[in-house]
Design a protein around this nucleic acid. Structure first.
Lengths: 348, 348
DNA sequence: ACGCTTTCCGGAAACGTTTTGATGTGGCAA
DNA sequence: TTGCCACATCAAAACGTTTCCGGAAAGCGT
């Protein structure tokens, strides 16, 4: 005698048809309130949960959202649990609709595009959150073409009209420049990654405009292109030391840089906060204990996760009703946290 | 005309039966080498990839491994990309068998046990890697009962005979004590989390035995119980300063503690490496730039991932053949990285 | 010509679920 | 009585895949 599995077993146990059981469990109409209770009770008792493959096959939907992350060495070293922090917020929204979140880590030896292609083809999730977007990102074209709902964490030039959330680089650049200028600085440098990376391009552009608004001439030599790492900060300091008309202040686009920057400067007897003003961006726990404390920008990862999830659901036909067509492109604000690293004030 | 999907479409396009197509794609015998090539080519051309739900339903297997992680605030702040680092190694093994890895983040407002129960019931993965094991962990009992292959990162008292990998706390404690004793230290403190946590219990026990092997009396007051954080390190220093017969050396069970420990000590004019010897455990990028550099223990996250995956596969009947019944319980070694923080040598 | 084996392939069943259409009640108005 | 509707249920089809089974064709030795 073949032991029946799943819903069949449950139906037999209740002496009822499987169709009714299914409708009862899924809250469909056309089922007597009395029977529904019985079914629910029995399911609880027998610990029955619908097999996901069965549902997916029938419904063409998996009730799962994927969040693609890269586990490259760079990501592992730099992103510092950024993703784990975001997932909390994402899930708080998804759980309202019985959706689960899977993180899909792209192996470092596989091309992100190929990986995404595989995940899309296997239809293992209904929608996607992607991050680390490139300025030209083939994944976006793929998702658009395959009509998979998605939201990107980061702008891109690809794909035309799609949903993204990005950090408020312009706001940060503007506030940082304003603050430094108000303390008397005129020669302000910035350490940023290459302009191939979206962040590097957008940020520096905003920095330039902010300077010009204060009537300060933009000097390209003060844009120091380095990697987003401690080492990059060290090199930025090195470069800055060699500049003629040495800048009196610097904006570090990634906080981790501050560690290396401090080190190189202190080697030279130049103390941040006393002899040079420093502002960092994108709060980073590893830099939390710098002395003097870094003036920096902070954001709430959990809130960002909530926004991501809501934006995503708004694009999914089934759930869109609950999420009024909100802004499809969001600039995520960051809050300035004053520290001592920019206490250095120039006399007027 | 209903557009046929998937394998049917492919079969029709090739004018061949779906059974043959399936066999061809899955490398089964009983298919002409010539036809197999044709099928493979056509699949490639049309971008066909088998729908996962269909396969899963038929085979009762999902070809996916889950790695449960917690996204609690504590984890996010402390584990510092530990998981992302490990996934790389895990995937390098799984990809050999066309297995995918999903990270399953447990929402912080959901009980880990309930979350795991749901994941198991939905049968969304074939096997699991769990971490952050408790000394008594109901998840383990659940997995054993449900006969889901799994491996735990961390020992536990639950479930009897199962597979786990854990860090070599004993080895670290022993090596650290040996090293300090060889430098003349006799009064050696240790800062550890509460003994409720497995690590806190095991480590301190090994520390005690190591001391006794050197004929040094174990003094409970030198076991300082604090949280595994920078703040914990600060408090450890605070406590240590108040001890009579103040210890001349300390072992910090979590490197992050070193940051706070240094700070408090320097406030007191006591310099690590010069006036007190410090050894840290569980390398932690955030502590990488301490001055003086910390003598610490290091491990390869990627290699740990490989070991995890291989141990897991060895317990899965389908793959066990490739992975000879290796040790089901592995103590993962850590390597000592000498720094300057324990340069302080006591005259004999 | 015959029987046997090997090689290859097609047809159909099966996996567990949801959904559709049909069916059988009973109540109410005409 | 008849017709109609609402309600609750059941039986069966469908989702896309893998696998079992049977059988045709071809090769080979007698």
């Amino acid at each position: 005698m073949p032991q029946m599995r799943g819903i069949r077993q449950l139906a037999k146990h209740l002496d009822i048809s499987i169709g009714t059981v299914s409708r009862a469990l899924n809250g469909k109409p056309d089922v007597n309130e009395e029977t529904r209770k019985r079914v629910l009770a029995a399911a609880e008792e027998l610990g029955y949960v619908a097999n996901q493959s069965g549902r997916s096959l029938r419904q063409g939907t998996t009730n799962a959202i994927g969040m693609m992350v890269e586990s490259s060495k760079e990501t592992v070293e730099n992103s510092d649990n950024f993703f784990l922090g975001v997932t909390g917020g994402v899930q708080s929204v998804l759980s309202r609709h019985n959706l689960d979140l899977f993180m899909l880590p792209c192996p470092n030896d596989e091309d992100p595009y190929e990986y995404m292609k595989r995940m899309v083809a296997r239809q293992v999730v209904d929608a996607m959150i992607i991050s680390a977007t490139q300025r030209i990102d083939k994944r976006i074209d793929l998702l658009v073409k395959a009509q998979i709902p998605f939201v990107a964490l980061g702008r891109s030039s690809s794909g035309g009209d799609y949903n993204w959330i990005d950090l408020d680089f312009e706001g940060v650049a503007t506030k940082a420049v304003d603050r430094l200028v108000s303390k008397g600085h005129r020669r302000i440098a910035v350490a940023a990654p290459s302009s191939d990376i979206n962040l590097g391009y957008i940020f520096v552009d905003a920095y330039r405009r902010a300077l010009e608004r204060h009537g300060i001439e933009y000097d390209p030599s003060r844009v120091i292109r380095v990697q987003s790492s401690e080492n990059g900060g060290y090199q930025a300091a090195e470069t800055m030391l060699r500049l003629e008309d040495r800048p009196t202040a610097i904006i570090l686009i990634y906080e981790l840089m501050a560690i290396g920057f401090y080190r190189r400067m202190v080697e030279e007897g130049i103390f941040p906060g006393r002899d040079v003003a420093v502002i960092g961006f994108r709060e980073e726990p590893r830099a939390k204990f710098l002395q003097p404390s870094l003036t920096r920008f902070r954001m709430s990862l959990a809130d960002l996760g909530v926004e991501l999830a809501e934006t995503l659901l708004a694009t999914m036909p089934v759930y869109a009703a609950h999420y009024p067509a909100s802004a499809r492109n969001t600039i995520w604000p960051l809050e300035l946290v004053p520290g001592e690293s920019d206490a250095f004030i120039l006399k007027a």
